[in-house]
């Protein structure tokens, strides 16, 4: 090999140390730079590198408002709603209305509604309420509320025909009157009881007026909202008063929304459950602490004994982006 001839003119006692020294110095320089110039290595050595993979955004329960409660289902059928219903029903175009034909139903506890936990009433997560505020004019054009309830009037109205029906949480009760199919979303009928839901007030409406009232549906709020996206909030236990009368749920969106938000306090899953969940995933929990009243900060080791630090959602135990990630 001709390469070996170098050692005929370059003394190995100089050439070899020079070669090895060059390799050593360059290698050291590269690794030193990595240690001092990059953040991930330091994080790794501190045990945070493998923590929570991707920050999962956990939908806060509270934001029910935003989250549509598509599924709101009316659970119970109410009793005798018929008499009244019909009248309204007739006109009521609202086909989709999830309305419950059954006369009074109790409000269907909309699960999704963040409000869920909260008594339906308060919850009255009428998200759409927001919609309500909106002029939603179109939707409820007809909704005429004779009802004394002034408020009702402003609201787009919901007419609940069903007699005695209890809340008709029909979510999407279509906007009955609302011609605008899109608009329709929510309808929450509230009865007096719903008072808390401040926003929602029931006002007796004349049957006639209640065109809006979806046929069977106990209540319908016209969701004038153009944005179809708006989801109806279910007004869980809204109760309809007497048959003949339709209640109007004057919903003021804003208030309702707030109510919902408040109804969603931070819940902390039991430490035992959290530890069990993590153990199931192969982690060994070393310590758990609450951070900012919003996360569980867990120090643990994975199946390989590597230290892991992770912020977890207090209610579900799923990884979330903690303050450090922000």
């Amino acid at each position: 090999m001709n390469n070996s001839k170098i050692w005929l003119v370059v003394n190995p006692s100089l050439g070899v140390p020079l070669l090895l020294g060059t390799v050593a110095v360059s290698s050291f320089a590269v690794h030193y730079a990595i240690v001092t110039q990059t953040p991930w290595l330091a994080d790794y050595y501190e045990g945070a590198a493998n923590a929570a993979p991707a920050p999962l955004v956990v939908a806060a329960p509270a934001p029910a408002a935003e989250a549509p409660a598509p599924e709101a289902v009316v659970t119970e059928a109410a009793v005798p709603a018929e008499p009244v219903a019909d009248a309204a029903a007739v006109e009521a175009p609202a086909v989709d209305a999830a309305a419950v034909e059954a006369p009074a139903a109790e409000a269907a506890p909309v699960e999704e509604v963040a409000a869920v936990e909260a008594p339906a009433v308060e919850a009255a997560p009428v998200e759409e309420a927001a919609a309500v505020e909106e002029p939603a004019a179109e939707p409820a054009p007809e909704a005429v509320v004779e009802a004394p309830a002034a408020e009702a009037a402003p609201v787009e109205e919901v007419a609940a025909e069903a007699p005695a029906a209890e809340a008709a949480p029909v979510e999407e009760v279509a906007a009955v009157e609302a011609p605008a199919p899109e608009a329709v979303e929510a309808a929450a009928a509230a009865e007096a009881p719903l008072a808390e839901a401040a926003p929602v007030e029931a006002a007796p409406v004349e049957a006639a007026a209640a065109e809006a009232a979806p046929a069977e549906a106990a209540v319908a709020e016209a969701a004038p909202v153009e944005a179809a996206p708006v989801e109806a909030a279910a007004a869980p236990e809204a109760v309809v008063e007497e048959a003949p009368v339709a209640e109007v749920a004057a919903v003021e969106a804003a208030p309702a929304a707030e109510a919902v938000v408040e109804a969603a306090p931070v819940t902390w899953m039991p430490l035992l459950d959290l530890a069990t969940q993590l153990n199931t995933l192969g982690y060994t929990v070393l310590s758990v602490s609450r951070v900012d009243d919003a996360y569980y900060l867990v120090n643990m080791t994975d199946a390989n004994g590597m230290p892991v630090v992770s912020y977890l959602d207090p209610a579900t135990g799923t990884p979330v982006a903690g303050p450090a990630a922000e």
Binding site: S4, W7, L8, N11
Partner: peptide, 13 residues
């Protein structure tokens, strides 16, 4: 000049 022969240089190499 380095004090090595060709064979020795090849050995080092």
């Amino acid at each position: 000049p380095t004090g090595l022969t060709m064979a020795e240089a090849e050995e080092v190499q």
